[in-house]
Lab assay of single mutants.
Amino acid sequence: NITNLCPFDEVFNATRFASVYAWNRKRISNCVADYSVLYNFAPFFAFKCYGVSPTKLNDLCFTNVYADSFVIRGNEVSQIAPGQTGNIADYNYKLPDDFTGCVIAWNSNKLDSKVGGNYNYLYRLFRKSNLKPFERDISTEIYQAGNKPCNGVAGFNCYFPLRSYGFRPTYGVGHQPYRVVVLSFELLHAPATVCGPKKST
């Protein structure tokens, strides 16, 4: 009989979020998941679920829940969905086509923008091939755009693969920082350890 609540607040209220190319993952297990707390949290810009209804989450049990978190621009949030393409979905964070879970995003301009620009948040701009679902690539190898080998030196046709967002408070909404948490639900042939409040007695 599990009684402790799942530590969703640790994920959602973290002081610093990860850059999207180096997205953070927390495994959540052996706890009671009260999703209504999240669902009623006012400032969400997006709360979209795939393969599961957000209002039914509290009735369900899962083997594991993974909480992935990172920061992207407002106009990139739409790429955090199954079957998407674009710089983020291709080179930074890719969801599987059969994704079961929820994508939760909110504007973090007050936290993550600075006058003069916040350059701490990076994304991958160049990559030889697209990421596989949930693949994480933190390499900083110089990207070779031409035929000539770069030998690890940036220059003509040789690019550092990461780019900084440089968030400023005055940017338009599409270019403002958004914090994103992706909850993915794993249902294995194993005992369920993460259940909603109704199922955990």
Rank of each mutant, 00 (worst) to 15 (best):
P7A: 13
K56G: 07
S113G: 04
A42V: 09
D9A: 02
F134N: 03
N147T: 03
S78P: 01
R163W: 01
G152K: 01
A33F: 01
R163N: 15
K198V: 09
V37R: 05
E141T: 08
A42G: 14
K110S: 04
G146C: 07
L95V: 08
G152D: 08
N58K: 06
P54G: 03
S200C: 15
Y119L: 01
A81R: 06
L111F: 05
N58D: 11
D9S: 07
L187K: 10
K132Q: 11
G166I: 03
F41I: 12
A154N: 07
S164K: 08
E135H: 10
F17W: 14
N147G: 09
S53R: 05
T193R: 01
S164D: 11
G155N: 13
I138N: 08
A105S: 10
N40L: 01
V173G: 10
F45E: 11
F160P: 00
V103I: 13
N4D: 15
K148T: 11
I138Y: 15
K56S: 07
A42F: 02
K26S: 10
K148A: 04
G116D: 11
T201R: 14
S78N: 15
R16I: 12
N75L: 09
A42T: 13
T140L: 11
K199A: 15
L188A: 15
L5I: 06
P197G: 05
K199N: 02
G117M: 00
S184R: 07
A190M: 06
S19N: 02
Y39Q: 12
V173L: 09
F134W: 08
G74Q: 04
F126Q: 04
S200N: 10
R16A: 06
Y178W: 14
N130Q: 14
T55R: 04
F126K: 11
Y91F: 06
F44H: 10
S29K: 12
Y66L: 05
L5P: 05
S164N: 14
Y178A: 15
K128E: 13
T140D: 13
E186S: 14
V65L: 01
T63L: 03
G83H: 09
V11L: 03
G174R: 09
F134H: 12
P149M: 01
S78K: 15
F126R: 04
L60A: 06
Y66W: 09
Y178V: 15
R16S: 06
N64I: 10
S129H: 11
I2R: 08
A190S: 08
D59A: 14
N1K: 01
V173D: 08
F47T: 06
S53Q: 04
L5C: 01
S164E: 06
G83L: 15
Y39D: 13
A145S: 15
G74K: 04
L187I: 10
N4Y: 02
G146N: 04
K128C: 01
T140V: 12
L5D: 08
Y39I: 07
V153Y: 11
G155K: 02
I2N: 15
P191N: 15
V20I: 01
S19D: 01
D97S: 06
P169G: 00
P191T: 15
L60V: 11
S129G: 10
K26M: 15
G196T: 04
F41V: 14
L60Y: 15
L125V: 15
S139Q: 15
H189M: 04
A190I: 11
G83R: 06
I142N: 07
N147D: 13
S129I: 04
N87F: 06
V153T: 10
T193Y: 10
D97K: 10
T63I: 06
H189E: 15
T201F: 03
K132A: 10
T55V: 07
F126T: 04
F160A: 12
N109V: 01
K199G: 05
R163F: 00
T140G: 06
Y123S: 03
S164Q: 07
E186K: 14
G166V: 13
